[in-house]
Simulated assay, not measured.
Amino acid sequence: MIATILVPPVMEIGGGAIGRIGAVLSRLGVTRPLVVTDPFMRDSGHAERLLAPLRAAGFTADMFAETVPDPTTDVIAAGVERLLAGGYDGLVALGGGSPIDTAKAMAVLAANGGRMRDYKVPNPIARTGVPVIAIPTTAGTGSEVTRFTVITDTETDEKMLIAGPMLVPAAAIIDYELTLTCPPRLTADTGIDALTHAIEAYVSVKASPYTDAMAIAAIRQIAPHIRRACADPGDRTAREAMMLGATLAGMAFSNASVALVHGMSRPIGAFFHVPHGLSNAMLLPAVTAWSLPGAPGRYADCARAMGVAGPEQDDAAAGLALVMALRQLNADLSVPSPRHYGIDPARWDGLLETMAAQALASGSPGNNPLVPDVAAMVALYRQAWNGD
């Protein structure tokens, strides 16, 4: 098997790495960057702390701070208008997965024209846009190193997966110190998102020795540190491990793809505006339990990497230990079920078939060790409703 591996050509990793932004922009030939961020980053002053030294260093920099959770086609259209009108030659995405996904989509649409739905999987992207420099402020999405973006179509409420080599950022600055102020809920949701990336990359039918190494390394970083990072936001050792684990998991799933959890998770986010990492967490134990027979050895490896199963346990016992550990992690981090999150039960039931059909159409379930049909996914949604 030949694996095609795509990662950002430039990566700056470590505490204080954000100080390298000027050198990274110069290396890429960017002189007029547009910082893409969200209102919190703007209003809290975090974005200005990035802009001020850039301006002092001679860069003509400006800010687009209209990004929203679960980026929408409306926001992308506004961002593209700003990008083209200002003549910017690079995008600096500062924030969680939403600003990074927004910047990626802006670059694609500005370079290729049309509408975002024209580029949803499996449609190709012809041209590369302006360079995107990704600076994550959460440890979870891995978007800073991936070939994916996820955009919600405002007209249809479909959460569209868009993929291609053109979406891999030109550079990533991975500075764990930017996560020290993340609150516990955000830390938990993004951390479980990263763990899900690692597990799904490892069990994906598109896995390779390269992605296996990244995925197992990510699990070993995340599992012992996620509770610590949530309990003590200032735990620098835990924060650094979570940031490294999220990036490793991002490189793993970008090159091996995600699977059933992500396929089923995206429609929950689109229809009910549940944060992506949280909707993953709602589904992860149930989907893992259902998928175990498809790859018992692979799931057992994940359990051993998490430290919840020993080498003396057979694969079946280790797989069950993994499911129990995921359930316990959700309990420890107060992950609500869809019901306890406050989703209207009648609307949930009414959308199950639609969500399952959209999940299947995204292609992600096809990477799962066991490939479900719509009926199987409807049953899993029902199982997740009250909590696994």
Results as ranks from 00 to 15, higher is better:
residue 223 A to V: 08
residue 311 P to K: 14
residue 376 A to R: 13
residue 136 P to M: 11
residue 274 V to W: 05
residue 251 M to N: 07
residue 83 L to F: 01
residue 174 I to D: 04
residue 157 D to S: 06
residue 161 L to P: 08
residue 250 G to W: 08
residue 242 M to S: 04
residue 114 G to H: 06
residue 94 L to T: 07
residue 244 L to A: 02
residue 84 L to G: 14
residue 308 V to M: 03
residue 368 N to M: 02
residue 247 T to F: 03
residue 38 D to V: 11
residue 73 T to I: 03
residue 165 P to A: 02
residue 362 S to W: 12
residue 60 T to D: 15
residue 294 G to A: 11
residue 41 M to Q: 14
residue 137 T to L: 09
residue 384 A to H: 07
residue 121 V to P: 11
residue 297 G to E: 15
residue 220 R to L: 04
residue 239 R to L: 09
residue 211 T to S: 10
residue 383 Q to H: 11
residue 189 D to Q: 14
residue 286 A to Q: 10
residue 161 L to D: 05
residue 112 N to S: 09
residue 130 V to K: 10
residue 294 G to K: 10
residue 290 W to T: 05
residue 30 V to K: 04
residue 380 L to T: 05
residue 349 D to N: 14
residue 63 M to P: 03
residue 384 A to E: 04
residue 169 P to W: 09
residue 173 I to S: 06
residue 231 A to L: 15
residue 64 F to S: 07
residue 323 V to K: 09
residue 343 I to F: 00
residue 375 A to V: 10
residue 328 Q to Y: 02
residue 158 E to N: 08
residue 242 M to L: 13
residue 228 R to A: 10
residue 341 Y to D: 04
residue 305 A to T: 07
residue 278 L to T: 05
residue 54 L to E: 07
residue 254 S to Y: 02
residue 233 P to S: 13
residue 338 P to L: 08
residue 325 A to C: 06
residue 359 A to L: 06
residue 374 V to L: 12
residue 78 A to Y: 00
residue 351 L to Y: 08
residue 212 D to A: 07
residue 383 Q to P: 00
residue 353 E to F: 05
residue 44 S to A: 10
residue 274 V to I: 06
residue 86 G to P: 00
residue 381 Y to P: 00
residue 37 T to L: 13
residue 84 L to T: 15
residue 212 D to P: 07
residue 24 V to L: 06
residue 241 A to T: 03
residue 382 R to W: 07
residue 334 S to P: 05
residue 128 T to V: 15
residue 279 S to H: 09
residue 77 A to Q: 13
residue 342 G to P: 00
residue 323 V to C: 03
residue 33 P to R: 09
residue 102 T to P: 00
residue 209 P to C: 09
residue 178 L to Q: 03
